[in-house]
Amino acid sequence: MTVNPKFTDLRSKPDVSIDMTPVRKSNWKTGGARDYWDPKIRKFRFNIPIEYLAEVLADSDHPQDVAVIRIGENRLMELAGALGDKDLSFNQISNEDSSKTSIFTQYPNPVDVGGMNKQNIAIGINGTVIDEFIEAITTDPQTEEAYRTAAEYIGMPDCCTDFHVDNALALRGDPVYDIACNTPSAEIHEDDRENVLIRHPDPFLNIFWRYNGWRLIHHLPCSFECEESGEIARRNYDAISDVCGHKHEAEHLLAWLDQPMEWTGYHSLVNMRNAYGIGSYTTDNYWSKKNIVWKKPHQDKPDFEPNHLTTPLEPLDPDRGAF
């Protein structure tokens, strides 16, 4: 069953523009949660995405030819080194307002890898591809043709590209409510379609924490059970785990993404919570509060003591969570 997101049309009403400085933040709930998770998944905010994106883009069988990352000026040499080894190219997306013309450059979609004085950079298989991609995403106003061109370079499956045409043209960069409603296992309360429960999502497609780099796909899926997106996410997972040698980190990232959690979006700000942490980032102008529950309501806090947080990773269990 898919849910008709009947409140979507209210996203643009009233006709008042909200201009927000991008913000991202995360707080651990307890010292135990921090000490357990942070060493394992923090690297996804910095160096691991650069490493595995280089592998993914260099893989001619992988559908993704371009990625957009936000990186500080002080880390450009590091980026150049990582891409040079794979004979890849990169170029700055020079239009300072590009983040407002395309959902591919709009926060929180670029892969943010930290640094000072960040800028959006397109990395890709060669200069021509990058130039064509940048031309497509800086077309103002955005056209469907330009959006589809950029989507192909990003490696979006056709089902996802088709689903997000309207969002792309309306510059809704974080349409997760729409995605949730389009997910087959979505459940709603009677007459309350702003509260959506996704009972059996694919953890590989969890994009809620992407502002922290905690994600396995680089496009907006059409649903949290999209099979084609799931295949791409699994290839990316393999690149992180097997090719780049970050098996331990990949396992824990997936376990994190599999945790029951809650996302709410309202007035351009997101609040997220799972058993271990809370977070926030700037989102679309949701004029009424949207609420998404991932798998099931999360625990208020970890149900174990910090000293027990050395529990080995267990097989994923959709009803129980990873731990």
Partner: peptide, 25 residues
């Protein structure tokens, strides 16, 4: 949060009073 004290400031590698997005909004 969820009604229990979550870490803020130094313990969670953040600065106290880091951002003012609520007020910008």
């Amino acid at each position: 949060g969820d009604g229990v004290p979550f870490l803020q400031g130094d313990s969670t590698n953040n600065e106290y009073e880091e951002t003012t997005e609520r007020y910008e909004m």
